[in-house]
């Protein structure tokens, strides 16, 4: 039973200049004790997906449709239906789902001590007086490997090193022992050694608490090291979803294949130009019709060549299960004769 199920989530930013479909039909599941890696190029909607789950998408962003089902007491509650400033979602934020994100420099207020902010997080979800909450904060700091926790509590975030700051951030996210931790590029701003330490810490904490982790990154190396399952996103859509071994050893979607080809491996020859994905991400207002990846796809099928007249620039592919737990959204894997819905975009 999934801890959190995201079903066909769509989050749009509607402005006068045009609509950005930041998330446009994302579907995936998170399980207790497992790590789901989310990869994709910049701007593909990873962060907006994370914020949608917590219902903290800033204006003018809005969840247009879809479900975010959080398992609770044997049933599910749909986070997408909650009042975004209501008591219920605030119980979920921090209490059941913790968030750690990239900017370690600015994710803490510069004029409040780190301890003040961590203790606040504890007291929001636990009925503890100041002294007990402080003791708990010290315990949390120790748990995430911060030395001298008593002293660190009274320091400001800008007095801490990047690694310590991210550890403090993780401690704050774990204040109420959430069942799910969303880590949005938690190590992007850190040096390689610190990055490895933070990832090790996350793995360690997961073993201890059995929490689910949603790890957002564009670093496939981090994914390979950390994830059990992987979601590959492109322009707000899930293009491929599967176990980490499958994704790395038998990628199905041309986009995933291209992404994997573009990472440097040790076996590669030095000074050989890495293959890059041709073209660039289209402007959010100028979304390609049909499969959003088709203008950059090496295996694109034109209408004439395609079987059953289904072609990439007209018909939007759906997620197709190719193996147990492995699905891909690409016409190449469509079973012959299956009905294909004409995408709305093709009407334009």
């Amino acid at each position: 039973m999934a801890l959190l199920s995201v079903r066909d989530l769509r989050t749009y930013f509607v402005a006068d200049e045009g609509t950005t479909r930041a998330v446009d039909g994302a579907t995936f599941d998170l399980y207790a004790g497992k790590t789901l890696g989310i990869v994709g190029e910049t701007g593909c909607g990873k962060s907006v997906t994370a914020r949608s789950i917590l219902r903290i998408v800033e204006r003018p962003g809005r969840i247009v449709s879809g479900e975010i089902l959080l398992q609770r007491d044997g049933g599910y509650i749909d986070l997408a239906k909650l009042d975004p400033d209501g008591r219920e979602i605030r119980r979920v934020r921090g209490g059941e789902i913790g968030l750690v994100f990239q900017e370690p420099m600015t994710s803490f207020s510069p004029v409040h001590t780190v301890g003040d902010q961590v203790i606040e997080a504890i007291q929001l979800h636990r009925r503890l007086d100041k002294a007990r909450a402080r003791a708990r904060a010290i315990e949390l700091f120790r748990m995430v490997g911060i030395s001298r926790p008593e002293g660190r509590l009274d320091e400001y975030s800008w007095q801490l090193s990047g690694g310590l700051r991210q550890r403090a951030m993780i401690a704050m996210a774990l204040a109420a022992e959430p069942r799910l931790l969303i880590a949005d590029e938690p190590t992007t701003a850190l040096d390689v050694t610190t990055q490895a330490q933070i990832l090790e810490l996350l793995r360690d904490l997961q073993r201890k608490t059995h929490m689910a982790i949603m790890l957002i990154t564009h670093d496939l190396g981090v994914i390979a090291e950390m994830a059990d399952d992987v979601v590959v996103m492109y322009l707000g859509r899930v293009v491929e979803h599967g176990p980490v071994d499958q994704i790395f050893h038998a990628p199905k979607h041309p986009y995933t294949q291209a992404l994997l080809r573009s990472i440097p491996g040790i076996q590669h020859e030095a000074r050989v130009k890495l293959p890059t994905i041709s073209g660039s991400i289209p402007h959010p207002f100028a979304r390609p019709a049909g499969c959003p990846f088709h203008p950059r796809c090496a295996l694109v099928m034109a209408c004439a060549a395609a079987p059953d007249g289904v072609c990439c620039d007209h018909h939007e592919p759906e997620l197709i299960t190719v193996e147990e737990g492995h699905s891909v959204s690409c016409h190449l894997y469509r079973k012959k004769g299956a009905a294909v819905p004409l995408a709305l975009e093709s009407a334009r």
Binding site: G94, G98, L99, F101, S107, F108, M169, A173
Partner: peptide, 15 residues
């Protein structure tokens, strides 16, 4: 627009 506002909301504080 600073990230610490998102942090504060993500903790469960009311807006």
């Amino acid at each position: 627009r600073k990230p610490y506002v998102i942090t504060a909301l993500a903790k469960g504080l009311s807006e």
